[in-house]
Nucleic acid binder design. Structure first.
Length: 319
DNA sequence: TAGCAGGAAAATC
DNA sequence: GATTTTCCTGCT
């Protein structure tokens, strides 16, 4: 079906789909093609309108509004996180970037795969899994695949998952899929409870063994922020960590800051993660997740793959 | 709690 | 072409 949506609050389709939250969108010319919710959604932005085409009536304007959270006015939200110069500049530069409300199971599975991988790789792994285990469907003469449900991946042989290029992530994905399939995790509960509680649910141990192997604090925060409406969640990945150490010396304890510099290869302990998480949430407020989104964009654009490495002054090592 | 392995692909040298 | 890095977690 075809439809258009009038945009009433700031929205940039390009920025939003390039912000690293989702992995199953691809740009072809003026259109974005997304394999979402078992179908295909095409979208392009023309100023204040969003033009869409989809493979199913289920992917209509109501779905799109919910998916991109278009009924929420982000203007006051962005104003509320603009606590300092750094975030204010990031917000101005990438104005209109939005949090996406994506499918919870797909989000969880995707970020379990995201450890120690870059975005092209993550996309490739997910694409392989969908090709092999998802349902095939046709749209506009091309073949696409849905994201396989937990029951499908729970019953998949680990060896086959490995063949999708998952490496050591294969057994983790299978175990997470099994947990979800057996009802070990109620996504509805996650949405109902507040941030702290639902985070505990994702991370806590149940019956003596960890419920979801492969889900640590960072992955948990991604799932909560990108799929469970927990806007104060602030996932701290390597990009954010560097950005914080560079631009927010005052809210990061010195001991931890030392570990965050690009030169130091030390990684955050879970204790460190919690401390930093608390300070940034204290600084940015209940919409810290939006701040994370914009800082991530800024970090990647200034120091990221988009530019030849000349730029950032690499301080002469004092080692 | 610190240190390390884990697997493969992309980015960088 | 070799090395380093990669949206990290689990185990010892």
């Amino acid at each position: 079906m075809e439809f258009t949506i009038g945009l009433e609050s700031p929205f940039s389709l390009d920025y939003t789909l390039e912000s690293g939250q989702v992995f199953r969108w691809a740009r072809k010319g003026e259109w974005w093609y997304g394999e979402v919710s078992g179908g295909l959604l095409k979208a392009r932005q023309e100023g204040g309108t969003l033009r869409c085409e989809s493979s199913s009536d289920l992917l209509g304007s109501e779905f799109v509004r919910n998916y991109f959270r278009l009924d929420e006015d982000i203007e006051p939200i962005l104003a509320s996180i603009a606590k300092d110069k750094v975030i204010t500049e990031a917000v101005q530069k990438f104005y209109g970037t939005r949090l996406i409300r994506q499918d919870r199971w797909e989000c969880l599975a995707s970020f379990v795969l995201a450890t120690n991988a870059n975005i092209p790789r993550i996309k490739k792994m997910i694409s392989e899994i969908c090709t092999r285990f998802g349902e095939q469907f046709e749209f506009d003469g091309s073949q696409y695949h849905s994201f396989p449900g937990p029951e499908k991946l729970a019953s998949a042989p680990v060896a086959e998952l490995r063949e999708c290029g998952l490496g050591y992530r294969a057994p983790f994905l299978k175990r997470v899929a099994t947990s979800v399939d057996q009802g070990g995790l109620d996504f509805g509960e996650l949405v109902m409870r507040d941030y702290e509680e639902s985070r505990k649910m994702l991370l806590t141990k149940l019956f003596g063994s960890k419920l979801l192997l492969g889900v640590g604090p960072k992955v948990a925060d991604c799932v909560l922020l990108y799929s469970c409406d927990k806007d104060e969640a602030f996932p701290i990945d390597v990009w954010i960590a560097r950005e914080l150490s560079r631009s927010y010396p005052r809210i990061i304890p010195l001991q931890i800051r030392k570990k965050l510099t690009p030169e130091a290869k030390a990684k955050l302990t879970t204790g460190d993660y919690e401390k930093v998480s608390k300070s940034v949430r204290r600084h940015f407020g209940v919409y810290a997740g939006y701040a994370q989104l914009y800082l991530y964009m800024a970090a990647r654009s200034s120091d990221g793959p988009g530019r030849a490495s000349g730029g950032m002054a690499r301080s002469p090592g004092v080692s």
